[in-house]
Design a binder for these strands. Structure first.
Lengths: 223, 223
DNA sequence: CTAAAATATTTAGGAGTCCTAATTAAAGGG
DNA sequence: CCCTTTAATTAGGACTCCTAAATATTTTAG
C-alpha cells in the first residue's frame, strides 16, 4: 500500500466529510460495534473450520458433524433430524453430508428398534480418531483468550450467555441447552455464595464458571 | 444399515459415565464455553444473513457485498481484490458474486484511470436502496443487546476488540482496521480522563466507546 | 526501453452447501 | 384399517468457493 497523502479532497465522503478532526462518526454507537465485532469473530470461526476440515480432507460441514457426534454421547441427539435442528439446516442437507461421512467410513448409522424410522449415528474408530484431531479446530481462538484474566473471561462468557439466552427467548436461536434457559436452573439460589446459582437436577450449587453452554440434561422452560 | 438396539453398554462413554449427577464435566473450563458461545453466535449471524438475503432475492454473499459497499465510501476499499481480502475469499469468488450483482443492476464497476487493471465498484441507485434495507440484517442481535446497560456493553465490546486485536496480531484475522491495532492509536495517552486514549491522526482523545472496529483512516503497525 | 515479473480481474471447472419438493417407511389415532 | 404425521433419503437447482489458467496492465530489471 502506498497513498497516504492526498486525503484532501474526495477521500472523505459525506459520511465523514467535515468530521475528520472531530470525534469519530461512530461515536457512542457501541451496539453497532458490538455487532460488527461479533460478526468479525464469526468470520474467524468460519475460516478456522474451513482450514481444519480441509487439512483432514473433509468439508467444513462434515467436520462439524463429526466433532458434534464426537462429544454427544446421548443417542437421542445423534440423529439426522436432531443435528439438522441443532445447526439450523434441513434434514436433507444433513442426510447428504452424513452419507458422505458414511461412505468415507467415519460414521455408521443403525436403525433404532423402538422406532425403525430413525437412524442413530455413531462414529467408527477411524471417525473417532479423526474427530479427536478436529475437535481442536477453534483452538486458535481459545489460545488468544489466554490474554484475559479469569475474571474477565467469566464476565465475557456471561455476556455471551446472556446474549444467547436472550436470542433464544426471542426465537432467533432455535436450539440451545444452556443452564440459564433450563427448567432446573435456579438463578441466585445461594446469594452471597461463591456458587450463587443452583441446578435442581444435579442438586448442586453452580458458580458462574460452572454454567453450561450445552448441557445434555437440559430441559426447556422457566424454572 | 439396519440392526440396532443394544444401547446397553456403550451409551455412556468414558466422558460421562458415572458423572451424571456430579458437577458438570465442563466445570471451570471457561475458555471452552467462551468458544462455544462465540461459535453459537456465529451461527446466528449466518442464519440472519441468509434469511435477510433471501427475503430480498439475494444470496447471502451478495447481500454481504452489497452492504459492505454501502458503507464504504472510500474507493480504495471498493475493489474486487479488497473485498476478497476483507472477507477471506479468493478474488475469483468475489468476482463471480459481483458480476451477478452487476447483472441484477445493483452494482456498477468502472475501470480506474490511474490503474486500468482495477475496477472500482459502486452501487446503483437501486443497489443503494436495497443495501439500505439489507444493512439492518443483524438488527435482531442488536436489539437483544438492549438488555445490557451501557457499562456492560462497553465492557463486552472491549473484550471483543481485545480478542480480535489479539487474533489479528496472531495472523488469524487477516484484515482489521481497529483503533487498537492502528499506528495512530495511543493507548492511555490521557490517564485518568474519561477519554483516556488518543488518535494521533484525528488528534482527538478517545473514550472506550469511541474505539472503532472499522476505521477508514486505519494504518497498520504499532504506534 | 524492453523483457520478465508482478498485480488485478475474469473465466472455467469441480466439490460442496443447502434448499424445496417428492418419495419411502414406519408410527399412531380414530 | 385408512389417514395423517414423522424420519430419513433422493433428486434437482441455485450458490459458494476453490484452483488453475487466461487477460490486461503495471512495475521492475537489465
Amino acid at each position: 500500500m502506498e497513498p497516504a497523502v492526498r486525503q484532501g479532497g474526495r477521500l472523505l465522503s459525506e459520511e465523514r466529510a467535515g468530521t475528520v478532526f472531530e470525534r469519530p462518526a461512530q461515536h457512542g454507537d457501541v451496539d453497532a460495534k458490538l455487532v460488527a465485532g461479533l460478526e468479525r469473530i464469526s468470520r474467524v470461526f468460519k475460516v478456522l473450520l474451513q482450514d481444519a476440515a480441509r487439512e483432514h480432507g473433509l468439508s467444513p460441514i462434515q467436520a462439524r458433524f463429526l466433532v458434534h457426534l464426537f462429544h454427544r454421547p446421548v443417542d437421542e441427539l445423534r440423529r439426522v433430524g436432531r443435528i439438522a435442528r441443532e445447526f439450523d439446516l434441513t434434514p436433507a442437507t444433513v442426510s447428504e453430508a452424513i452419507s458422505t461421512l458414511q461412505a468415507k467410513g467415519l460414521v455408521a448409522g443403525e436403525r433404532s428398534l423402538q422406532d425403525r424410522r430413525v437412524v442413530t449415528l455413531r462414529l467408527t474408530p477411524e471417525g473417532e480418531r479423526l474427530a479427536a484431531e478436529l475437535s481442536g479446530w477453534a483452538e486458535p481462538v481459545r489460545e488468544h483468550l489466554g490474554a484475559f484474566d479469569s475474571g474477565e473471561r467469566e464476565a465475557f462468557m456471561s455476556y455471551l450467555m446472556r446474549l444467547i439466552a436472550s436470542l433464544q427467548r426471542g426465537g432467533i436461536v432455535t436450539v440451545a441447552r444452556m443452564c440459564v434457559t433450563c427448567r432446573h436452573f435456579r438463578q441466585g439460589a445461594h446469594p452471597g455464595s461463591a456458587s450463587p446459582h443452583h441446578c435442581a437436577l444435579l442438586d448442586a450449587p453452580l458458580a458462574g464458571a460452572d454454567l453450561r453452554i450445552d448441557c445434555s440434561e437440559h430441559e426447556s422452560g422457566a424454572a
